[in-house]
Design a protein around this nucleic acid. Structure first.
Lengths: 208, 208
DNA sequence: ACGCTAGCGGAGCACCCCGTCCACTTAGCT
DNA sequence: AGCTAAGTGGACGGGGTGCTCCGCTAGCGT
């Protein structure tokens, strides 16, 4: 009895796990979180039981699938905070995070919704929001950001951004860029209107 | 054989129809369009068959339930167009329509999605969009609206507005007001920032 | 090469949905 | 009061979901 460590997966199991995660990421990305576990199992060419053994609940799968984007999010915040020009940092932050969310419907949903058990997920979000507060403080001090901006407005921005539905990822990204620019413009303390990214045709979607 | 007109419903049937519509309106309003037909039947204290006999498809029910809001929408557009100050009319339009959509999740979904068969619905929408184009033209001519505004931006605004989720209808309305003001600010051609409605605490929702 | 066990996936559970059929009820006219 | 067609809702079949049980397969250490 060789006393294998319980945390070491067998090679085939590890492969399956990776494939499941990869499939989950891409599927959640362009179809949102409403995809059924069975569907993911099907696409990963895995039995439902395997999926459930690896990720006991949908929540676990989602959390695991999106740690990457969550990290990208916090990185964007750090970058914004690190920028010597706080207003440029603020804009960068908004644009990056909006782009991140626009690329990935599922992530937005995951980010917005509070899973009761995904503690580290919500923790990261809280930490990010605190950093944003600091960044906003500096940008206000520099006279570039409206003094009446509050952190909750970031949530408002993210929610607004999450409302975008487009026929292609590219269109969604473009629309998101324009919206982000528009909101930044709205929050700018400086007078004149600055140029916007191009507008996008947003065809209405057939009913889901 | 008294030759009853086929369009006259029996009294009890008419009652049921009204009750169904009323229930559908309120239910769609605060839970979106994803409510099942059965659920609506249950709340209206009616068998599924009755619901389906009166409204052969969910689309029919939705269309019928939201004609009221749709009319309110076109009225808002007309009012905006009628305002002698095109910029004030434009702002009024954006604010009203956003408020209308914020009050009613289901309506937003219905408005955004294109039902293949709800011809009159989409027709009204097209007509409204054309009026908006005219209003925008005037507001631009008055130098109040950015020249790079396009009608598709209204769709963008509506989508953004539809992304708002809040714990209470009041909070949703408040958030929508602030967002609308922000976007109007973004589209303003004039220099200085104008005051915004108060910010809103937007608690994240438990996963749907 | 072999045996042991981690790992597998199909079948099955209980629950939901949709839309339809049909035997019963009841409004409304005479 | 009685008749009849309009109206009703329970029940049904087909399909989906989240999740679990269990007999078979195959990776891995010897």
């Amino acid at each position: 009895m060789p006393e294998r460590l319980p945390h070491t997966l067998r090679s085939d199991a590890r492969d399956n796990r990776e494939r499941i995660l990869s499939v989950a990421r891409s599927t959640f990305a362009d179809a949102g979180l409403d995809v059924s576990m069975r569907e993911i199992a099907r696409r990963a060419e895995v039995g439902p039981a395997t999926l459930y053994r690896r990720f006991p609940t949908k929540e676990a799968l989602v959390t695991e699938a999106f740690t990457e984007q969550m990290n990208a999010c916090t990185v964007a915040v750090e970058e914004g905070l690190a920028d010597p020009d706080p207003w440029r940092g603020f804009c960068h932050l908004i644009e990056t995070v909006c782009a991140l969310h626009a690329r990935d419907r599922g992530f937005t949903a995951a980010f917005m919704s509070s899973f009761p058990h995904a503690i580290d997920f919500t923790a990261a979000r809280e930490r990010a929001l605190r950093s944003v507060t600091e960044l906003a403080r500096r940008a206000k001090a520099a006279g570039k950001l409206r003094p009446d901006f509050v952190v909750d407005d970031l949530v408002l921005i993210l929610m607004a951004n999450s409302g975008i539905r487009a026929s292609s990822p590219a269109a969604a990204a473009a629309a998101s860029r324009r919206l982000a620019a528009l909101l930044i413009q709205g929050f700018s303390a400086e007078p004149g209107p600055r140029p916007l990214p191009p507008a996008v045709r947003l065809p209405l979607m057939p009913v889901a």
